[in-house]
Design a protein around this nucleic acid. Structure first.
Lengths: 229, 229
DNA sequence: CACTTTTCGATACGGCACGTTTCGTATCCT
DNA sequence: AGGATACGAAACGTGCCGTATCGAAAAGTG
């Protein structure tokens, strides 16, 4: 197989790969991904935009998936994943987390977020690769936030992050997918009328298995590959 | 344009359309839709399964969208939309509504629900057509349920259905899309730790504009059609 | 500096799947 | 009967895939 990872170091003689080509291609992948989606992405189109030859692409990545994963890994879609959140109030923290998640989705934008679903859904491997490449979806509720809220008396001890983790990612993603606005007013409503009351009530509920938006496929056979006949 | 709606009655001469062909085709559309999704649906494949000629399809529907909409309209995907819900408790009502919504998604199954997003997202017209064809998404919280709960003292007067309408549809749909289970345990957790507490807290929050999952595109230009260059 | 190795863009090929149209035949209405 | 329409089969063009080949360029190697 003529495809070698770029990072391999055996230092063969000959003309080295052009890093500029590589990044140009990956940028093109992001662009095409954004407007055509995963299914609609073709080697042909990527090569066209990058001003590169298809051979150059195939020399690097044997499959579309590899190429896309590489682009996601290198692309601007990385989660900001800034430091811990502590605004002094639970409301503030939750708002900040929501905003951060929105920013992540926006960064992974051009509907890359959509791609996550559209493609990952059909292709568990790609799904995992995406999650690994793009980082955690950011829909987790950090323990530090819960702890701080408990310390302040805003939450009962043993509060369960389930409502946050389960709701926020889904709602914001779906909202984004449908082109519905998720402005500050909306976030406030979500935090005040859903998240905070729900979190307050979780002390007695049994803890739920948290589930990422993209990870955690429990039913491996839920993802059919090819049809019957 | 040689395409005429089947229902037109002007009684033209010539061989009439074969209703059996029609339903066979629409069934095939449903099937293909279920396993290949909207993007993956082709005239070719539908014709193959229906044992029909592609010309026969084209004679009826000029575009894929028309065909799909026809299939949805005729298909078994209609929402059950049973009568009003009244189980005697708010919890019970909410659970019942969730189950009903799940049933709708399952009825429109084979990931037809997915199709709703995957395609509707890119195509507002299709989106509207779907919503019109398949009926309301069922993620509304009937006023009767709220009223009953208020009467029982389970909710404060003026409770806002926002948490339910905004959360349930998104969460269940996304869960379904990702192949994550939404069993009864899960629904109980959702109802008890999210919905009920959130609904209880909505008396003072300003009412939010309700938004269906599929309808209500506020930004018409959020839906790009063709590329640039 | 010559020589080798590898990359690069361009281009071409066979193959396949699809969309769309054409054609001969079958079927039904008037 | 005659005209009009529906039907299935097949043809045509297009776009993409995956691969291969070419000449030129760019680096290391002796």
């Amino acid at each position: 197989m003529p495809y070698r990872k770029v990072s391999e170091q055996p230092r063969r003689a000959g003309r080295p790969r052009d890093a500029a080509r590589e990044s140009a291609i990956l940028e093109a992948v992001d662009a095409v991904l954004a407007e055509r989606g995963y299914e609609g992405l073709t080697y042909e189109e990527v090569a066209r935009r990058a001003g590169a030859s298809k051979a150059t692409l195939y020399r690097r990545w044997a499959t579309k998936r590899e190429m896309v994963v590489a682009a996601l890994r290198a692309g601007p879609a990385r989660a900001p994943d800034a430091g811990p959140v502590d605004t002094g109030s639970l409301r503030g923290d939750l708002l900040a987390l929501c905003r951060r998640l929105l920013a992540t989705m926006r960064a992974a934008d051009g509907r890359t977020a959509l791609l996550l679903l559209q493609a990952g859904l059909e292709d568990p491997e790609l799904c995992d690769a995406i999650e690994e490449a793009v980082g955690p979806t950011g829909s987790r509720l950090p323990a530090s936030v819960v702890d701080a809220a408990v310390r302040r008396g805003e939450l009962p001890a043993g509060a369960d992050p389930f409502p946050f983790e389960e709701v926020v990612g889904s709602v914001l993603l779906l909202r984004r997918l449908n082109g519905l606005a998720a402005d500050d007013d909306y976030l406030h409503a979500l935090v005040d009328t859903v998240l905070v009351p729900a979190l307050r009530a979780t002390a007695d509920g049994a803890p739920r298995p948290p589930a990422g938006i993209f990870s955690g496929h429990p039913a491996p056979d839920t993802h059919p590959r090819e049809g019957d006949s």
